[in-house]
Design a protein around this nucleic acid. Structure first.
Length: 555
RNA sequence: GCGCUCGUAGCUCAGCGGAUAGAGCAACGGACUUCUAAUCCGUCGGUCGCAGGUUCGAAUCCUGCCGGGCGCGCCA
């Protein structure tokens, strides 16, 4: 149950009487009480009465008996203090609720979450971290909220660079690309040859043509490259604790046979204009450097298709064939304009709107200690596997086993990424993200480990909450706030709202842990405190799971 | 030039229409016969980039500046 909803319902009835209209009770958490209602303040003008007077009137009429007490405060707030018995009962109900009080969506949507999207034949770098981690957290959360979630990994598995890669594969023999770990070296070697060897360059260009023509021998080599890359990606996702599977891979190549139809459909709707030999859409409201209309190039002047065509085909496929009602694109902020243009064209084509929405879920950059884009000392992008290795190595100092070190190290990286406001850049800082104190993954995992330890020692007990100590009270109140936190993530697509909540919960728990002995408490109190531990543990575990972060039982 | 985005305590960040702007780190002072003290409690610390505007009320909404980042025709 949601206490805000309960209080809002009770106050709403009284407010309706006082205001002779439906009024939002504006119930919020408060530093002065459990909750507050600020509804009386905006009513002062329309009712021509002092806000404190209105608040007192509402408090007098509201049916709060046995639920809460209300008292007028400050300029006209109602401070609401929930009855201990209500808190205890509500907490008790959580014990038998697998969803920890979080309601399942009344109207489930089909949400396509497009995230990670690495290039085949290249290794994952820190540049893929945010899309992968944020996208996965959103997919997990929306799924748990009851929506049908379709994960899509929009692989870069097509395009001109594959001519070069396939030629290189032919030159070197098939064995080399069988080694997943050295994709970068393979790519770079091909790149060097392409840049320096005229003959190779020519062969590469011809190879693209044979690939696109569907030559079986060429396709076989291409599939080998893709398969090798996918194996490596799946290994890394598993290690990262990312829920993407092989079935979620849907690369650019899979839309190739739909591109001409996209162009046909757009053309039939009069959305395309020829400009400098290319077929372009000019959605309203986008201007280029010269102040003129900005084109979305759907078909290039050489007759080939660019990424805009692929994105449009993918969008259409997701709406028409997958039945998506909400499309999420977890792609870096620099591509914001591109996606807005794609959405504008898709809307004009009738693929969006009418119950189907598309949102670009952008995010800021990962920065190094110098405040610039996070790069290695040599200046190239930082490989994700190396980053994970270092995280685990550093975490092993505070973990009893390699498995726990992996959970803590990788959890620390993911938590640090998710805990920041999505759109802001953040500085990658080992010491801060691995700290046992503060808003960090290890702090939450540590709280969970302490709870596990207590519950292990406790043995069986009959769960039942009674409120006797102010920190028991604070903890129960916090546990009941899980639902709003999870719902906020589903609506805002901002995972940091959940990290903020979980960090607060762990903070309240730690204070409780210090001041409220559990195992040595007298009968009754002991069971109640154990129940609070149980619920806190479940909430931390579930919350971290929604973020894709593991909760080891020991640290 | 146009567009997007960020600018809150020394540092890293929450808060995004409501009461004296909150955490953590750092600094300083406390608490270990105690369930994991790698923890907890307390103190110190802010003209919420600047200036206008809307409002009973603005860190929060609007406008304009200033500063950082990113984007702006055949790469994705």
């Amino acid at each position: 149950m949601n206490l805000e909803a309960l209080l809002s319902a009770r106050l709403g009835a009284a407010l309706a009487e006082v205001a002779q209209a439906t009024v939002d009770p504006a119930v919020r958490r408060s530093q002065f009480a459990d909750f507050q209602s600020g509804a009386a303040l905006p009513l002062a003008r329309s009712l021509g009465r002092p806000p404190r007077d209105i608040a007192a009137d509402v408090a007098g009429r509201a049916d709060l008996a046995g639920v809460a007490t209300a008292e007028v405060s400050g300029p006209g707030f109602l401070n609401l203090t929930v009855a201990d018995e209500v808190l205890a009962e509500a907490a008790d109900r959580l014990v038998s609720d697998a969803r920890l009080g979080v309601a399942s969506a009344r109207e489930p949507q089909t949400v396509v979450v497009d995230y990670s999207g690495p290039n085949v034949a290249k290794e994952l770098t820190v540049g893929h971290l945010r899309s992968t981690v944020i996208g996965d957290a959103l997919a997990r959360t929306l799924e748990w909220l009851g929506h049908r979630v379709v994960r899509v990994n929009h692989l870069g598995d097509w395009g001109t660079s594959f001519g070069m890669l396939i030629e290189h594969l032919r030159d070197e023999g098939v064995t080399e690309a069988g080694q997943a770990g050295d994709l970068t070296a393979f790519y770079q070697a091909a790149r060097v040859k392409f840049d320096t060897d005229e003959d190779f360059r020519t062969r590469s260009r011809l190879r693209v043509v044979t690939l696109q023509a569907g030559d079986e021998e060429t396709l076989r080599l291409w599939r080998r490259l893709v398969a090798t890359s996918q194996r490596y990606l799946l290994d890394t996702y598993e290690r990262l604790g990312v829920s993407l599977t092989e079935g979620d891979f849907c690369g650019e190549s899979s839309y190739q046979d739909q591109l001409s139809s996209v162009v046909d459909e757009l053309q039939a709707k009069g959305l395309l204009v020829e400009s400098d030999g290319a077929l372009c859409a000019f959605p309203a409201g986008f201007t280029g450097r010269d102040g003129g209309p900005l084109p979305l190039i759907v078909r290039k002047s050489d007759g080939g298709f660019g990424y805009a065509a692929t994105d449009l085909a993918a969008l259409r496929h997701r709406v028409r064939d997958l039945g998506a009602t909400r499309l999420l694109y977890v792609v870096g902020a620099p591509q914001r304009t591109h996606f807005r243009m794609v959405y504008a064209v898709a809307a004009a084509a009738g693929w969006l709107g009418d119950g189907v929405s598309a949102e670009h879920v952008g995010f800021g950059s990962v920065l190094g200690a110098d405040g610039k884009m996070f790069r290695s000392r040599a200046g190239d992008s930082v490989k994700l596997t190396g980053l994970l290795d270092e995280a685990v190595a550093r975490a092993s100092a505070l973990a009893p086993t390699p498995e726990v070190a992996a959970a803590v190290g990788i959890g620390a990286i993911k938590y640090a990424d998710l805990a920041n406001d999505r759109m802001s850049d953040y500085v990658f800082d080992w010491d801060r993200m691995l700290a046992l104190t503060g808003n960090t993954g290890p702090y939450l995992q540590y709280a969970y480990a302490r709870i596990s330890s207590i519950l292990d020692r406790a043995g069986d007990f009959a769960p039942a909450v009674t409120i006797g100590h102010r920190l028991e009270r604070a903890l129960a109140l916090e546990l009941l706030a899980f639902e709003p936190a999870v719902l906020a993530v589903g609506e805002s697509l901002e995972p940091h709202r959940l990290t903020t909540y979980l960090s607060g919960l762990a903070g309240v728990f730690s204070a409780f842990y210090e001041q409220c002995p559990v195992l040595t408490a007298p009968a009754g109190v002991r069971e109640s405190r154990l129940t609070l531990c149980l619920l806190t543990g479940r909430t931390l575990r579930r919350g971290l799971d929604l973020l894709g972060i593991a909760t080891p039982a020991q640290m």
